[in-house]
């Protein structure tokens, strides 16, 4: 692989989900998600409805990458937060190391409250994610794919 893979254990996943649930409650948000900077959704909590969270994650990462590129052009390292305010729904994105905290909110909340609560929780998320990265890099970790066979890989394409 090009970079270290992230391996998310079940306990860590539930730990992160609990943090997201708390943030959602404290900020009266519609939805809170944690997304990898490469566009992979890590965890999401809230009113999902028929929202396409996979696309949302990918576009959020693209958004942060594009504004990060602009930041570098003007001599900034990155823009740590981004906010997009719509007529009814708004999005606030917070860059926390290699992950993005995404909060979708409506008129039940306000940008000020979302910013405040996101900031308060970002240290906790940064610490948890640093531990997850450390766990992912442990040598000898047993992955489910270490014994995958060529036949199993081929079977994925059998529908074609």
């Amino acid at each position: 692989m090009t970079n270290s893979s992230i391996v998310m254990r079940e306990t860590r996943y539930h730990q992160i989900k609990a943090v997201l649930a708390r943030l959602r409650l404290d900020s009266s948000a519609r939805l809170v998600a944690l997304v990898d900077k490469d566009g992979q959704q890590i965890a999401v909590h809230g009113e999902l409805g028929d929202l396409d969270t996979t696309s949302l994650a990918s576009l959020a990462a693209g958004n942060v990458a594009a504004t990060g590129g602009m930041a570098k052009l003007i001599g900034e390292r990155e823009f740590p937060t981004l906010s997009h305010e719509g007529e009814k729904e708004s999005i606030h994105i917070c860059v926390i190391g290699r992950v993005l905290l995404l909060v979708v909110f409506d008129d039940r909340s306000s940008l000020g409250l979302v910013k405040l609560r996101s900031k308060q929780i970002s240290n906790e998320l940064a610490a948890t994610f640093a531990e997850i990265e450390e766990e992912s890099n442990v040598a000898g970790i047993s992955l489910p794919f270490s014994e995958i066979t060529d036949e199993e890989i081929d079977s994925l394409f059998s529908y074609q």
Partner: peptide, 15 residues
């Protein structure tokens, strides 16, 4: 960078 999620039993790769 591959992302392996044991909780949702998913593996995500980027091409």
């Amino acid at each position: 960078m591959t992302f392996i999620n044991y909780a949702s039993r998913e593996i995500n790769c980027k091409i």
